[in-house]
Design a protein around this nucleic acid. Structure first.
Lengths: 340, 340
DNA sequence: TTCCAAACTTTGAACGATCAAATCCTCGCG
DNA sequence: CGCGAGGATTTGATCGTTCAAAGTTTGGAA
């Protein structure tokens, strides 16, 4: 394997100077067409590829985005983030960006890692996922002036739209609203909701969609609750269904997650109502496998929106945000996937 | 945000020279303890972090591993690779390595991408996943002398152990063998197998485990077949069960994948035998959710093995393999997760 | 005391690219 | 025919680190 050719080699072969070769690569517009072609031929002939480390050193840009890979939780919904990461990688690739993943077990450890990556100039920007109330990461990133976008709203503030940083999220309420409307139209007025304890923003948001749609239709329905997990959900609903009237007075059930939906579906089947319409959230493979309707978050759309916010709609590099400009926010509309 | 400190700044602060600072960082052993401490204090005081691009340029090492992220298939088993990637990232991080992910839609496009990454000195080595018969990538990597390990055997050769490259894989036959033995011991002698058409190595390998275990026990059982997918599997088994004798003469069913297992489980439940023991493969969240036993591949173990082969058991950098040394292979033993 | 070897530290150069500024062409016009 | 304007191209410097080799100190033996 011979030594890799450098700009110098290409320049020599094309009979021009280093800088002209560099110009052909980075701003082709300012090079005379015939020269450009000659250089391009030399590049092809030598199979030249720029040494990214050298470019990074000089330009102080890595063309790389850092993404935290959450620890595998073993649950159902891990898939969602993986789809997001995948979509992000594809989009980023199209824009000449690389994606570097890193892992950390806590927010503090993540900040430590980010410090390495940012100060080592290995990444130009960050995509933060799974933001939570009082998340130390966003503040740290803002303070350090690191460009970043979060997938997920900064829950807890009064008015999320006045948040200090840029984010993209899925409109959970819109999703459950659509699901509830669909259930009302096709199954009957007694649409229930199966949710989490109201301590996390996501769950409250999704429940709101159901409430609003029910209120709009002048309908009412029962609300059930459990922590996440198929087994828990199945147990909880089996207990609820131990009173036959509960099941008899239910036309459909909108759930806050696929895990709960699967549990409810199984419990309903156990209780003799396999056909009870159940709608989940996240459209995971499980829902698909069992033929359960679900709300699809379209991580692909989220990824596209994240990149647009990070790089501008057409940019090919991450732009340093001026602190004056107020942060932007995008809410992606999920869509209902109807099954059975 | 002030300019980031360089080795020079640290050297000045500590009253030593650049190189001594560099030595403290890279080979602390050769620096006198008191000097080392003084330098270390200066490093901490200035919060100095090496500029990785400069280091890369000089050392010609990126300390980065490239991993292809397969397109999201939408099926059940995508999760497996994600777990692997995650485990790899964690392990790599512990060894001072970064993980860069890239995507490509075809093997050819992947080679194109790899060319960029390798020639651009962005990655030191590659982890290839999903190798298939006649895979062009492995040959290309060998030819280019790029260090790499594949997750998955090079199917198709006569003796896979004589393969020209290094790989790690899960011993599928051992998995189904264990599953079959368990079924024989707990359910009865008539253990069936539900597999894919025998065109891919993986499926044949897994089926072999069942055959061997059955032969050892002097038992026989039916074999069913379908392409992958829950819906297909459910349909196929429902049809098979339309003859009641088939279901009556079945004590348990070992399946080549979780998708098939889920389909078979649903079909069995439809036919009135919800309790029919079904064992899947991959231990995906779906199997967990439905309480179906499954064979766990332990992607964490695979990731650890991959890194060991790529970096040596304790190394902190990817070593260039000498062509003389023959490639190594690791077969990871999966384990059966029993449910219900 | 003198000198040598070993241990430690410093100096100059290089990695491959781009930036900034200087130089060279090429026309059009007076 | 000379000159200036403007575009195209070249030159010198630089990014932050580590390598290779040269320089300095230290300790012990002769």
């Amino acid at each position: 394997m011979a030594k890799a050719p450098t700009v110098e080699d290409v320049a020599l072969a094309a009979g021009v100077s280093r800088q002209t070769v560099s110009n052909v690569l980075n701003s082709p517009g300012i090079v005379r067409p015939e020269t450009r072609e000659r250089v391009q031929r030399a590049i092809d002939a030598l199979a030249y590829r720029p040494h990214m480390a050298a470019r990074r050193l000089r330009t102080r840009r890595s063309s790389t985005i850092g993404v935290h890979l959450d620890p595998y939780s073993g649950g159902i919904s891990g898939v969602l983030l993986d789809r997001f990461v995948h979509a992000l990688t594809e989009r980023a690739g199209e824009r000449g960006m690389r994606v570097l993943i890193y892992s950390a077990r806590s927010a503090e450890e993540e900040i430590e890692r980010l410090g390495d990556l940012v100060d080592g100039a290995e990444i130009d920007g960050v995509v933060v996922t799974g933001t939570f109330f009082g998340d130390p990461r966003t503040g740290w990133l803002l303070e350090r002036g690191v460009p970043f976008v979060s997938f997920g709203r900064p829950w807890g503030g009064d008015d999320v739209y006045r948040s200090a940083h840029t984010w993209v999220d899925v409109d959970g309420a819109a999703g459950t609203r659509a699901a509830t409307r669909h259930a009302l139209a096709t199954a009957g007025p007694r649409v229930g909701f199966f949710g989490w304890p109201p301590d996390a923003g996501t769950g409250v948001d999704r429940e709101r969609g159901w409430r609003e749609a029910m209120a709009d239709a002048g309908a009412t329905g029962p609300r059930f609750e459990t922590v996440d997990g198929v087994a828990d959900a199945r147990r909880a609903m089996t207990e609820a269904f131990s009173d036959p009237a509960v099941l008899r007075n239910l036309d459909a059930l909108v759930c806050v997650s696929d895990a709960l939906a699967v549990g409810a579906h199984l419990a309903a089947a156990d209780a003799g109502r396999r056909e009870l319409p159940v709608i989940g959230f996240d459209n995971t493979p499980v829902a698909e496998a069992l033929g359960i309707s679900s709300i699809e978050q379209s991580p692909e759309l989220v990824a596209a929106a994240v990149l647009d916010l990070l790089m501008g709609p057409t940019g090919r590099a991450i732009e340093q945000r001026d602190a004056a400009r107020s942060p932007e926010h995008v809410l992606v509309e999920p869509r209902l996937i109807v099954r059975e």
